[in-house]
Design a protein around this nucleic acid. Sequence first.
DNA 1: TTACAGAAATACATAGTGTATCATAAGCTC
DNA 2: GAGCTTATGATACACTATGTATTTCTGTAA
Lengths: 205, 205
Amino acid sequence: MTLNPNDPRVKKTRRGLQEAFVRLILKQGYDSISIQDIASEAQAARVTFYRHYRDKEELLTDCLNTLYEGLAEKTQRLSPQSLLEGRSPLSALYEHIEEQENLYHILFSSRGTQTVIERMRHHLALNALDALRTTGRAPQGGIPLDIVAYHTASAQLGLAMWWLEHGKPYPAAYMARVSLWLTLSGLLETMGAADMTLPPPPFPA
Amino acid sequence: MTLNPNDPRVKKTRRGLQEAFVRLILKQGYDSISIQDIASEAQAARVTFYRHYRDKEELLTDCLNTLYEGLAEKTQRLSPQSLLEGRSPLSALYEHIEEQENLYHILFSSRGTQTVIERMRHHLALNALDALRTTGRAPQGGIPLDIVAYHTASAQLGLAMWWLEHGKPYPAAYMARVSLWLTLSGLLETMGAADMTLPPPPFPA
DNA sequence: TTACAGAAATACATAGTGTATCATAAGCTC
DNA sequence: GAGCTTATGATACACTATGTATTTCTGTAA
């Protein structure tokens, strides 16, 4: 028997399980959580869990997929106007991390399924490739573009992870601009376009 | 009763458990492994496992700590001579990944304890800070040095992870040199020292 | 060789997993 | 609103894994 995802009872149960799961992970860590724990926290029967998810891993994936879709949507909504105002896919990333801080803590911990992080990195790498192409040049020394793209994406994602895990020592908006600037200044050099210069972002008050 | 780590029987048992564990992780993944599985694979009694480790996690940490110490040692052995020959801490990293490929696959998967990855990133960040200081300049726009260091370290570590997880599409030595070059060219720009130029590494035959 | 420390064998209490069955209640259709 | 459908709750059960205790066996070192 397969459940109807549009049934309000199903939606309610799933939402309850997901939210309970996140609460428990933050409280006691992933590994020590049992299915019973999740069901109790969600005030549902243990059997109900198995109607919806095969195991804990599947529930986690469901949570993180939802998270990723939120980010993707936020990124998509960037208008040409907002780009001119200094916003970028990195702004969307940092804002989203602040909005969904709890989930990102989980995602960035060793418990976050690698697939979701991988998707984010890939997404950032594609953005980097775009930026590379707009320079209209080939990289110095024939360095393969995939290397440059993943070098860049790793720097961006890793910096965001570092920022969150170290208690957000700088404002999100500043981080987004610095990350972009560090990236672009490196890329311009890499692409033999050091003649184009960018002003570094001002340090916030 | 606490075990004597120098007793040859203890060493043999621990080595057996660690090696069995690695084999099993590569064969069936981390989560589905039971203590019994490990003990059987190591041809030991299940009770014996509990004499040495509290749980799977502790055994994994033991394996990965050993791995990290191997890397640290390899990095330390870099002589000024080898640095002049174009080797760097990044060369040590890429070589070590090739030598211990199986373990690194585990470490870089979502199962690798974040603490070990964190230590590697921190290690690379310290190296980056060194490089920043040798320029004798302050970063443009007053960008905080910790941001620059972690941006750099993330790029280096993330690129190495990408490389391994994508089937090592380029030689390790080339990756080490490209990673260093991408890093330095970005840093020189960041530090307002774009007048110093570095030749990009030649693409390998 | 003897004394000791670690490993093996066995047993057991406990907890978690995954499934089946049936009763109840929420939501949709007419 | 009556009746049908479908999800949930409650209970039970078989099975697997965990963690510890106890006793016996074996490798190591004085």
